[in-house]
């Protein structure tokens, strides 16, 4: 599970992993950061909040936060709402 993208010295292991994104199973090749995941999903990081295993991440951590097999990721954004329906 050691994965340091961008580092040439450290052993970089490409892993096949399963993560749950917004309640749906996803299969991805690691290493995968939160920023990469958002990019893959065509989402802009400044418009979303990301929670990994119930921990809310700082936006600044998206590029360095590595996802691991079994992680539960929630990606949320603002939608229309009131005085709610």
């Amino acid at each position: 599970m050691l994965a340091y993208p961008g580092s040439s010295e450290i052993f970089c292991q490409y892993l096949f992993m399963k993560i749950v994104v917004n309640g749906e199973q996803h299969e991805a090749e690691g290493p995968l950061t939160v920023a990469h995941l958002l990019q893959k999903l065509n989402l802009r990081s400044e418009q979303v909040a990301v929670e990994v295993n119930l921990k809310i991440l700082d936006r600044g951590d998206f590029p360095t936060w590595n996802l691991h097999d079994g992680d539960k990721v929630e990606i949320l954004s603002f939608i229309g709402g009131g005085s709610p329906a």
């Binding site: 917004n22 999903l41 065509n42 989402l43 979303v48 954004s77 229309g80 005085s83």
Partner: peptide, 17 residues
């Protein structure tokens, strides 16, 4: 006011408020 909800990750073209 806005609500906070899961984004639609299946529709890549869905717009954001």
């Amino acid at each position: 006011t806005v609500a906070v909800r899961r984004v639609n990750i299946t529709d890549n073209k869905s717009e954001n408020l």
